[in-house]
Design a protein around this nucleic acid. Structure first.
Length: 633
RNA sequence: GGUCCCGUAGCUCAGCUGGAUAGAGCAACUGCCUUCUAAGCAGUAGGUCUUUGGUUCGAAUCCAAACGGGAUCACCA
């Protein structure tokens, strides 16, 4: 409709104004809520072109539009704005189209290039936490958005399964695990603990043991005891200790940190972990078996968490599989002169011409760093999927710099697809008490949080008591749907780019802009349609629409463009805000008119059709957000 | 210090490709269940859009600076 009016105006301009109009001079916007109108033409640009008063220009266009465009009922002019009112027939026809369309708003599947979306990159030594929840819900939802606009999508995660941190858990388990009467160390099955939790516990034990050892070493050094310390380190420590005296508090702390670092390197337990990593890289059978076993426990634990979250993947990548490819790439790049080698053997890239710094890509001992692995993983993916067009990395914004560098390196290595790689950078989740810090024990565990939220949903649902006649299994399932739906919606409704505050109390609220609010509307429409035994029929276009009804059709009409906007911005939040507005409009309508008991049959059918269309869009968007849409609640 | 992100109601957030009187939710207060599910609806109150300049017919929105908050600048991942 908008385009039709624009085109008509451009065509008519020479006779109407005696001048050619450019497309950009015709600016439409949505009409303000409190003004009558379905579309608003901004008249200001015409003043310059036509050299007349704003009032004259507006009136002239008003007269012409009312006269010449069939579907327009009338217009009104307020200041520099021409508000155009469509005939009700137009909106009813629009509703009819929505009702008839197969998957309203969605593009045909697989009509756009294949995109891979990565949305979890857990370490295998720590259980998942609140930050992962935002990451994973966000990535999973973006994958659904891309599908909805026609992309073929591969959902993936990369598992950070190698490196010194894994060896730390392994070592601690060997050293510290109690042995039961059967002579076994602790396992998930003999403790009943989730595998990721068990392994995480030993990672913590390692860190504690390390800190203990560090403390002893530092104290020894303070007392001037350097018995077990290499000469070079001793000299460095003494030098640091001496410079410390003249500095201010902040500098002193920094020096203490440095001394601590040196002490860490002296500690026997860290040395053991390093030795273990060397053994692992050499595929030592015993170490390798331990690594496989403990990682297996973690994967099992993660799988449980993912299944509770309702999230799946199409393909998994393990860094242990890709880091060697990354190393090869670096060596190739070195030959091509993209990288350079320092005298100690370490390999670097100089990005200062691109406004960035120098970056290490391979250690002096030839082992891979984070960047090396990521280069390898990216290339591996494009080898696996030959039709792959681009990648979306859902990773926190603390890694903005890393991805800038990564994409630049891939470009320099000559990979065209590097231009289609996108870092979906999301903000951290803060707690009312501040940042989550594992050292201070303020990390919110994913499993605990989900359990809590479901429990809360149960209590609050029972309070309301709408559930007569449902079986226990159905009820439990519903509590889960509501609890998790609320949590997901809470994390997704905020612009992903922004840092957000997680308030445990608000996250399980049922009222206002929340998941359960939307789910409730869905359930209410569902039972309504069921009671009405609703079947889609052709609508009578002669009906006169109430304002509430028209508002809903207008909002429904926006769905497709909002979906595209969301895909361009990689933002489920855009859909969340849109659907919340839609449901609010629907609720207003629901409370102000009769539907089931409406005696006029055509009107009843219209209102049912409206309800059905709202439910369709609502359930589509809830699906994209990963929120379940219950039939009753 | 360099680079990047953010600053809108008491709180959490929309609005940002310039356009009308800046919107929601929570919290507070007032109404509405004999009528399709009140997890709802209607309403009251709450704002120097951090500040100062600039561009423009018009700025929360664009540009610059200042102030405040955060991230990042590892032979960690």
């Amino acid at each position: 409709m908008e385009n039709r009016i624009r085109k008509a105006l451009i065509d008519a301009a020479p006779t109407l104004f005696g001048i050619e109009l450019s497309e950009s001079s015709i600016q439409f916007q949505q009409t303000r809520r409190d003004v009558e109108g379905d579309l608003t033409l901004v008249v200001f640009p015409f003043v310059k072109i036509l050299h007349c008063s704003i009032e004259d220009a507006a009136q002239k266009i008003k007269a012409w539009v009312e006269e010449n465009i069939e579907e327009i009922s009338h217009c009104n002019v307020v200041g520099g704005f021409l508000n155009i009112v469509y005939k009700d027939e137009h909106w009813i026809n629009r509703l009819q189209e929505i009702q008839n369309s197969e998957r309203f708003g969605f593009s045909k599947a697989n009509t756009k290039p294949t995109v891979m979306v990565e949305y979890a990159s857990p370490n295998t030594n720590k259980p998942l936490h609140l930050g992962h929840l935002r990451n994973i819900f966000l990535g999973a939802s973006v994958a659904e958005i891309l599908k909805a606009v026609g992309h073929k999508v591969v959902r993936t995660q990369v598992i950070n399964d190698r490196g010194i941190h894994i060896c730390k858990s392994m070592l601690a388990w060997e050293k510290f695990s109690p042995i039961n009467d059967k002579g076994e160390r602790q396992t998930p099955s003999n403790t009943g603990l989730k595998g990721d939790k068990l392994v995480g516990r030993y990672y913590v034990e390692f860190e504690q043991a390390l800190q203990k050892e560090v403390k002893i070493i530092v104290t020894d050094w303070q007392r001037g005891n350097f018995d077990n310390t290499k000469e070079s380190v001793r000299d460095e420590v003494i030098k640091l200790q001496q410079t410390k005296i003249q500095k201010d508090q902040k500098a002193q702390d920094a020096i203490d940190e440095k001394i601590k670092e040196l002490a860490k390197n002296q500690s026997s337990i860290l040395q053991e972990a390093k030795d273990m990593l060397v053994k692992w890289e050499a595929r030592d059978p015993q170490v390798y078996l331990l690594w496989t076993t403990m990682n297996g426990w973690v994967y099992e634990g993660f799988d449980q968490t993912y299944s509770q979250m309702g999230v799946t993947f199409d393909k998994l990548y393990y860094e242990s599989d890709t880091y060697l490819l990354g190393k090869d790439q670096v060596m190739d790049g070195l030959k091509q002169g993209i990288f350079y080698q320092k005298v100690d053997g370490s390999v670097w890239i100089d990005l200062s011409a691109d406004g960035l710094d120098e970056k290490l890509v391979l250690r002096s001992d030839g082992t891979a760093v984070y960047m090396t692995q990521d280069i390898g993983t990216a290339i591996d993916r494009f080898k696996d999927y030959t039709d792959l067009y681009g990648m979306v990395y859902t990773v926190g914004n603390e890694q903005d710099y890393h991805f800038k560098v990564l994409f630049l390196i891939l470009q320099k290595l000559g990979y065209q697809w590097a231009n289609n790689c996108f870092h979906l950078s999301y903000g951290m989740v803060d707690l009312p008490s501040g940042k989550m810090k594992s050292r201070e024990g303020t990390v919110v565990d994913a499993d605990d949080l989900m359990a809590e939220v479901i429990q809360k949903a149960k209590a609050m649902t029972q309070e309301r008591g709408h559930l007569d006649g449902l079986g226990n299994l159905e009820k439990e399932n519903l509590y889960r749907q509501i609890g998790l739906g609320g949590l997901k919606y809470y994390l997704l409704k905020v612009d992903p780019k922004k840092r957000m505050l997680f308030n445990p109390e608000e996250s399980i609220d049922l009222t206002g802009n929340t998941g359960p609010f939307l789910q409730y509307a869905h359930a209410r429409i569902s039972t309504l349609l069921q009671k009405a035994i609703y079947k889609p029929q052709n609508l009578s276009s002669s009906a006169i629409l109430k304002e509430e009804e028209k508002q809903i059709i207008k909002q429904l009409n926006l769905f497709e463009s909002v979906l595209h906007e969301a895909s361009k911005a990689y933002s489920p939040a855009i859909l969340a805000n849109y659907v919340y507005d839609l449901v609010k409009l629907y609720n207003t309508f629901y409370q102000s008119v009769k539907i089931l008991s409406e005696s006029d049959r055509e009107l009843r059918q219209l209102r049912l059709s409206l309800s059905a269309s709202v439910r369709q869009v609502l359930s589509s968007i809830l699906g994209i957000l990963g929120v379940d849409a219950p039939q009753r609640m």
